[in-house]
């Protein structure tokens, strides 16, 4: 690998990843590779391990990696603390962003940016600069500017939380961003605003791993590749047409109890009805999402 330069390509490589929560093995050998400027969508049914994948890559406590590797530009991500992973260029936009009473996005990101700039701690100047960056990005996704000074995610609507995740992503400018259900809780305008901002970042080189139940967000994020995860394994990969097939047929063809399981690859596209934006219209309450991964709350 050549020495990194300002516009060097970056690659997150997940190989044979096995991970457990308690006694339950959730990831059973995941292989994925996400590079700069590329958008990968990972879709899967309830309990397939989608959110676990996001959490394990970012290092959320509560999971144990039992086999496999995750590297970013060849660096062993799994040996790093979560904050070191973030400093190395990973970002996780959370499905359910945690409320942090008394701590603003400006305070938190000022600390992160100060460290990245080689300072020990954030200065008043760094805090002010971070606040300005956050306010500018808030405007880009239609989030009220005063929310970036408020305690993180406290008293924010579901939509405001997701916009706030996008704002922080844009300010931190990671190399690879994992978006865990970025579309849940967003109305269509907010979804468009967030997705457009993320797409602009991908054009500037951001690599994206977008975990989602619904193809709706993919209209805006326009994935280069779509992966289907079932029972902790990637069982199919393809282009955007795979998402359309999922939209039409659901995950049934991939599930073991179905007679046609195992011929998954053949469903890609042909003969399927384009149903984007209709069949999978989400429920009003994103957290009552029938697809919600019960393992999300682990850890």
């Amino acid at each position: 690998m050549s020495a990194p330069t300002a516009d060097a390509a970056h690659t997150l490589r997940i190989e044979g990843l096995h991970a457990s929560a308690g006694d339950t093995e959730i990831l059973q050998g995941v292989d994925l590779e996400v590079s700069s400027g590329r958008v990968h969508a990972v879709m899967g049914p309830n309990g397939s391990g989608k959110s676990t994948l996001a959490h394990v890559v970012m290092g959320r406590p509560g999971y144990e990696v039992t086999a496999g590797s995750v590297t970013l530009d060849g660096v062993d991500v799994l040996s790093l603390a979560p904050w070191e992973r973030a400093q190395a260029g990973l970002f996780l936009a959370m499905q359910h962003p945690t409320e942090v009473p008394g701590v603003s996005a400006a305070q938190a990101l000022a600390e992160a940016l100060a460290l990245r700039a080689g300072n020990d701690s954030s200065s008043a100047e760094q805090l002010e600069r971070t606040r300005s960056l956050l306010e500018a990005e808030a405007a880009a996704v239609g989030l009220k500017a005063e929310l970036v000074a408020r305690p993180l995610n406290v008293d924010m609507s579901g939509g405001e939380k997701k916009r706030n995740e996008t704002v922080q992503l844009a300010v931190l400018q990671p190399r690879i961003a994992i978006l865990d259900e970025i579309d849940s809780g967003l109305d269509i305008d907010a979804l468009r605003a967030c997705a457009n901002r993320i797409e602009a970042l991908t054009e500037a080189g951001l690599g994206v791993l977008a975990i989602t139940h619904f193809t709706r967000v993919l209209e805006y994020l326009r994935p280069d590749e779509v992966h289907v995860i079932v029972d902790g394994r990637i069982v199919d990969s393809g282009g955007p047409e795979l998402a359309e097939a999922l939209e039409a047929d659901g995950y049934a063809p991939y599930l073991p109890q179905e007679p046609d399981a195992g011929v998954a690859v053949s469903i890609g596209g042909l003969g399927s009805t384009p149903a984007v934006g209709t069949g999978a219209s989400g429920p009003e309450d994103p957290f009552a999402d029938p697809w919600a991964d019960p393992l999300d709350e682990l850890g």
Binding site: M58, G59, R60, P61, A81, P82, W83, A86, Q87, F91, L92, M94, P97, T98, E99, V100, V103, A108, L109, E111, A112, L113, L115, R116, L152, Q168, L172, G299
Partner: peptide
């Protein structure tokens, strides 16, 4: 732990 992880996931030591 969740609050700590959230801040860590932004790059805060």
């Amino acid at each position: 732990a969740d609050q700590r992880f959230y801040l860590e996931s932004r790059g805060v030591p």
